[in-house]
Amino acid sequence: MEVPPEHCPGVESADAGKADACAGCPNRGICSSGDLQTGPDPKVAEIAAKLMNVKHIVLVMSGKGGVGKSTVSSLLARYLATDKTVNVGLLDVDICGPSIPKTMGVEGEEVHQSMSGWSPIYVSDNLSVMSCGFLLSSADDAVIWRGPKKNTIIKQFLADVDWDRLDYLVVDTPPGTSDEHLSLVSYLKQCSNLRGVIIVTTPQEIALMDVRKQIDFCRRVGLNVLGVVENMTAFLCPNCHKESTIFKPSVDGMNQLLEKGIPLLGRIPLDPMIGKACDEAIDVFENNKDSKTITAFEAIGHHLVKVLNDLNHE
């Protein structure tokens, strides 16, 4: 949080952002524009009401980019949707790198608006998706937005998307602990169905360092850490089916997480099949029942569902 300058006139003053004391303050432009909201955001209660028909909200985070967070998010959504009796939503708030439309095979789809809000894009009868990627004119367009505009679109996604009734809403977030994450926590703070966070990592210490930062962030803002998924644990050869270590595992780093009471939900091999499935939007749970990778992810999904059900009955 930014420290106000000495002799700050306050946001309610006519001199807000204009007084000599405001020179050099990073909030000067916001204060002088009059756009600073000083009271509770009325959208927070509106979001809680809009999402009250969602049974479980789960955030997927990673302290580091490139660890396969969006891959895990899309796999998790597809796994949950294998149970045709449940409805699953997948919300992509990775504003600058919206890859979910590609992994789910719904690139180029148009979002329609009705009296009840934005309609999500349906991958199947019980699996729907919403992403910033649907709002771009081209998949190659760069999203060059400052924090306030990112916050606005996240607020719209939470308040204006007509998910109807969902058993699970999986939220794919960008790497780090910055604007998008703070906005999510702020806007979802009245949602009693926010169950917590799954953190995705790779085995090496450089990734686990950022995981520890992510866990610290979650604890500071009151988010429950449901567990860690270790991705790319070992390379699984598609020909000989032998495993080779690509990233040197940090046993001490993982043990530190376990000692802090953070459960390991499971480990996923580095399998070329997963990369191909994401590129070509293939549902890996349909035709790969004998795959070691799919078996590993099904165990993770089963473990998570049990954790969520236990939380729901507390």
Score class of each variant (00 low, 15 high):
Pro4Glu: 12
Pro4Ser: 09
Cys8Thr: 13
Cys8Ser: 12
Gly10Trp: 14
Ser13Glu: 15
Ala14Ile: 03
Asp15Tyr: 14
Asp15Cys: 02
Lys18Ala: 03
Ala21Thr: 10
Cys22Asn: 07
Gly24Thr: 08
Ile30Cys: 01
Thr38Ala: 02
Pro42Trp: 00
Lys43Trp: 09
Val44Asp: 06
Ile47Cys: 09
Ala48Asp: 01
Met52Arg: 12
Val54Lys: 08
His56Phe: 06
Gly65Lys: 09
Gly66Ala: 02
Val67Ser: 05
Val67Tyr: 02
Gly68Asp: 11
Val72Leu: 06
Ser74Lys: 09
Leu75Val: 01
Leu75Gln: 10
Ala77Ser: 07
Tyr79His: 12
Asp83Trp: 09
Lys84Tyr: 03
Thr85Tyr: 02
Asp92Thr: 05
Asp92Pro: 00
Asp94Trp: 04
Asp94His: 07
Ile95Glu: 01
Cys96Ala: 01
Cys96Glu: 10
Gly97Pro: 05
Pro98Cys: 04
Pro98Val: 10
Lys102Phe: 11
Gly108Leu: 10
Glu109Met: 11
Glu109His: 15
Glu110Ala: 03
Gln113Lys: 12
Met115His: 12
Ser116Leu: 15
Ser116Met: 07
Gly117Lys: 07
Trp118Asn: 09
Ser119Leu: 10
Pro120Ala: 06
Val123Gly: 03
Ser124Glu: 07
Ser131Cys: 03
Cys132Phe: 12
Gly133Ile: 15
Leu135Trp: 11
Val143Ala: 08
Ile144Cys: 04
Trp145Ser: 05
Arg146Leu: 07
Gly147Tyr: 03
Pro148Ala: 05
Pro148Val: 14
Pro148Ser: 12
Lys150Gly: 00
Ile154Val: 14
Gln156Leu: 04
Ala159Ser: 15
Leu166Glu: 09
Asp167Val: 04
Asp167Arg: 05
Asp172Gln: 13
Glu180Cys: 09
His181Leu: 04
Ser183Ala: 09
Val185Arg: 05
Lys189Ser: 13
Lys189Gln: 15
Gln190Lys: 15
Cys191Ile: 08
Ser192Thr: 11
Ser192Ile: 00
Asn193Met: 04
Arg195Thr: 02
Pro203Gly: 01
Gln204Val: 05
Gln204Asn: 07
Glu205Pro: 12
Ala207Trp: 12
Leu208Trp: 08
Arg212Gln: 09
Phe217Arg: 09
Cys218Trp: 07
Arg220Asp: 10
Asn224Ile: 02
Asn224Pro: 04
Leu226Gln: 06
Val229Ala: 02
Val229His: 06
Met232Leu: 13
Met232Phe: 11
Pro238Asp: 08
Cys240Trp: 11
Glu243Leu: 14
Thr245Asn: 02
Thr245Arg: 10
Ile246Tyr: 01
Val251Met: 10
Asp252Ala: 14
Gly253Ala: 04
Asn255Tyr: 06
Ile262His: 04
Leu264Asp: 01
Arg267Met: 04
Ile268Gln: 11
Asp271Asn: 00
Glu280Phe: 15
Ile282Trp: 10
Asn287Met: 08
Asn287Pro: 00
Asp290Glu: 13
Asp290Thr: 13
Thr293Ala: 11
Thr295Lys: 15
Ala296Phe: 13
Phe297Trp: 00
Ile300Met: 12
Ile300His: 07
Leu304Cys: 08
Leu308Arg: 13
Leu311Met: 14
